[in-house]
Design a protein around this nucleic acid. Sequence first.
DNA 1: AATAAATACTAGTAAAATAGTAGTATATTG
DNA 2: CAATATACTACTATTTTACTAGTATTTATT
Lengths: 144, 144
Amino acid sequence: MKLSTKSRYASRLMIRLAMDSSLDPLQLNEISRKENISEKYLSQIVIPLRKAGLIESVRGARGGYKLSRSIKEISLLDVVNAMEGGVEIVHCLKDDKLCDRTSSCTTYRVWDDVTKAMEMTLARYTLDVLLDMISSSDDPMSEI
Amino acid sequence: MKLSTKSRYASRLMIRLAMDSSLDPLQLNEISRKENISEKYLSQIVIPLRKAGLIESVRGARGGYKLSRSIKEISLLDVVNAMEGGVEIVHCLKDDKLCDRTSSCTTYRVWDDVTKAMEMTLARYTLDVLLDMISSSDDPMSEI
DNA sequence: AATAAATACTAGTAAAATAGTAGTATATTG
DNA sequence: CAATATACTACTATTTTACTAGTATTTATT
């Protein structure tokens, strides 16, 4: 039950975008350097984020990416949802046609409950909360 | 971020053991029939459960399995922990030597929080709670 | 003692998911 | 027009998942 690197890298990328106060878009090449993640891989990660409407891209020279909403309005639930297509821990939560036991399934209710707990927790971590966590950290040079 | 079939099947197997009030051990062949899971596969699933001390086996003819603790003392957290070796959603939560960013990592704290939320939720579902859910269900013939 | 019924153990394997890489096309700036 | 960036498409090695198969061992029953 591991989170994919895509979700984790996407989270770090989003925090980098949130940290960038400049009006110009931030380029993948810079995020790649700071986060030590292949630029090519980042360029894949960025696609679902854009499709989910979390970020906007600017093409061409001096292009890059920026958040499309305020840092208060983007949570890690949004990010993980975008990357994984939902955080459901079993397929039948997403598509109940996958299993005809659903309506009478006891464990189904448990997995649903667990999924909701994850969602609630992730939703609490909006980008502004994460920035607060970083700025209140002991080490001012801390990584994200 | 899906739960493995092993964990899900193990949960259903454990509920079957919990439902069995007889003093004799329950055999895989019966669980296999009732749950529509290959007996051979169940025989693999049973191994981590036994190693985790959740069930006991009786070998030989008329052998089988039974819970080694009371239904109040076994939760789905125990089951998932046994099957997956922990519910951590990132490896670094289990072994912090895996990443040198750990001490200064903001997202680390999020993943830790999410993992704890999952653990708390799973721990609430002890086998006796699950049995209550089944018996209070509308359909007396409901599957688990 | 022999047989049947069960678990225990070891190994293998097909399919899917993961974690990337590579290359070309397209858009924009200067 | 050249340089710089994203956009898109395709491929691939590795790992994980979800099994299956076969043999060995233990125990109850006859």
